[in-house]
């Protein structure tokens, strides 16, 4: 238990993220950036060995590749997954990606392109829509937010809808919404899902020491409470050991400012 209490918030988020890929079956698990990638890796090494993963470049591997310089480690290749094949995988729906968008709205729509009211002259140009339009309309998606606040969870609609969501006005007759499947949002305060009426966003679990009111105050739109609202579980000793092996250079310690502990009183 003392080891669990020394877990960091990043490690708790990795465990929470790994839950997104439970019972997904055989599909490509794509965790983009450190915490989602460690979450997918942990899922594959614990509850969901059937998941497919890549070396984050172009090969499928039978064992998740550790992050950062690998020393003597040799990736265990089992197949090929170039960018072209990733697109084909996306269109066929056999993927569950977790990415961190710049903005998220109450409908689950996401923005990774440009922030500000004027698209022709944005206040902040980010990356571009990247693969979000395709990912979001073709396969399962979860989201990652390392800085839960009203600038991410915006009051209105996101400034440039890059990833689709559940806003009815966006879906005109004949457009197929069937494959849209938003699962979890893992933040530094809580885990959210889309289990409310009309896919409304709910707080599913609160990280230790965080209140629902605190989450609501950090969110630009009203949130629901899941009926079985719980506390996000701390990593087990076994999970922590796997995470350390997957991330020998502690890159997870650089994601959140100050690398805070999972249980604040333990600090």
């Amino acid at each position: 238990m003392s080891e669990q209490l020394s877990a960091t918030l990043a490690e708790l988020m990795i465990v929470a993220a790994s839950e997104a890929w439970r019972d997904n079956g055989e599909l490509l698990a794509s965790g983009i950036t450190t915490i989602p990638r460690l979450g997918a890796s942990l899922a594959k090494l614990t509850h969901s060995p059937e998941l497919l993963m890549t070396d984050s470049e172009s090969y499928l591997v039978s064992e998740p590749v550790p992050l950062g310089p690998r020393g003597d480690y040799r990736p265990k290749y089992e197949g090929y997954m170039s960018f072209e094949r990733v697109f084909e995988c996306v269109w066929g729906g056999k993927r569950h990606a977790m990415i961190g968008p710049t903005q998220i709205d109450r409908w689950g729509q996401t923005n990774l392109s440009a922030v500000g009211p004027d698209y022709a002259k944005p206040k902040s140009a980010v990356l571009g829509v990247r693969g979000l339009p395709g990912n979001s309309i073709c396969h399962i998606n979860s989201l990652f937010v390392p800085n839960h606040g009203p600038r991410v969870f915006v009051a209105g609609e996101v400034d440039m809808v890059s990833g689709v969501g559940y806003k009815p006005e966006r879906w005109l007759p004949g457009m197929k919404q069937d494959y849209v499947d938003l699962r979890l949002i893992v933040t530094d305060l809580c885990v959210l899902d889309f289990g409310g009426p009309e896919h409304a966003i709910r707080v599913k679990s609160l990280h230790p020491g965080v209140s629902f009111e605190q989450v609501q105050a950090a969110t630009g739109f009203p949130l629901l409470k899941a009926e079985n609202l719980s506390e996000t579980p701390l990593p087990t000793a076994e999970q922590l050991a796997i995470i350390r092996k997957l991330d020998p250079h502690n890159l997870r310690g650089m994601v959140l400012k100050g690398d805070p502990p999972a249980v604040k009183a333990a600090a």
Binding site: W91, P133, M160, V161, R170
Partner: peptide, 21 residues
Amino acid sequence: PTRVGLATDVLAKNPQLKTIA
């Protein structure tokens, strides 16, 4: 033809884009 881009602002910001049934 593709499903990709529907229900996003890729359509709104590219008024030259058309849909087809």
